[in-house]
């Protein structure tokens, strides 16, 4: 298996707080990998380090073999690695449809394409994806009027619209109505299997991540505590202690 993402010994501190300390992980092409850990263990910071939101203190991040730890967020996004936000970010004043349309890939863009419209196929694709996440009927509503859970679904659909190679999802089921979680799990799996998108998922819901991920990394206090298949990680004494200690 070829690795699509390789993180090696990445460290990041904020003042005195060591949020990430020598974290290494690798994600193979086509995999679904989970990241778990108690609150404040450094999961979101790790995502930020990977996608270039802040410069890392040390370590290396490679995407498809190329070093990306010096690149900026939009550049990394255009390479095909996208992230969603824990607090959910959508364009609130724009309609859901417009949110989708502007999420098209921006890899090749000339002055002419900037000033041009969207072809019919792009509209169709946007509608299909909104349908896929169950927001079709709301496509002409302002995205800011959606519920938090619906905004999460929209953000996920926007990410798919961008046709990424790899998607980093920060707690995709947080705030989603429990009855809808199975549906979302199914969609994540389909994005992975049918669209071939590699997934790295931060998740607090143990049931979700155990069902979804093929491998799991567990962080605690900024350090990598354990890794392995879901069963092994769940039964790892250090992981159990970290969660019990963190409560």
């Amino acid at each position: 298996m070829t690795p699509i993402l390789q993180v090696e010994k990445v460290s990041k501190s904020f003042g005195g707080i060591v949020a990430n300390s020598d974290i290494s992980l690798r994600v193979n092409e086509g995999e679904i990998v989970g990241v778990i850990g108690p609150n404040g263990s450094g999961k979101t910071t790790l995502f930020n380090s990977i996608v270039g939101s802040h410069p890392v203190d040390s370590g290396s991040v490679r995407f498809e073999g190329a070093e990306i730890s010096r690149l900026r967020v939009p550049q990394i996004a255009r390479l095909g690695m996208l992230r969603t936000f824990q607090q959910t970010r959508i364009y609130g004043e724009m309609t859901c449809m417009d949110n989708m349309l502007i999420s098209v890939p921006h890899r090749h863009e000339s002055l002419f394409s900037i000033l041009a419209g969207f072809p019919r196929e792009t509209h169709d694709e946007a509608e299909e994806l909104l349908d896929f996440v169950g927001l079709y009927a709301k496509r002409h509503l302002r995205a800011g009027e959606l519920s938090f859970g619906q905004q999460k679904l929209l953000e996920f659909a926007m990410a798919l619209m961008n046709r990424p190679k790899m998607l980093l999802l920060d707690e995709p089921t947080a705030g989603i109505n429990p009855t809808l979680i199975n549906g979302l799990l199914d969609r994540l799996n389909r994005a992975n299997k049918q669209l071939g998108i590699t997934l790295l998922v931060i998740e607090h819901n143990m049931r979700v991540i155990m069902n979804l991920a093929e491998r799991i990394y567990c962080l605690a206090h900024g350090q990598l505590l354990a890794e392995g298949d879901p069963e092994a990680v769940r039964n790892d004494q250090r992981v159990i202690d970290a969660y019990l200690g963190g409560q």
Partner: peptide, 16 residues
């Protein structure tokens, strides 16, 4: 419009 609503998000989506 996307830049107006959330410029960080726009960057995260790869917009120039």
């Amino acid at each position: 419009n996307a830049i107006r609503d959330d410029e960080d998000k726009a960057e995260a989506m790869g917009i120039h």
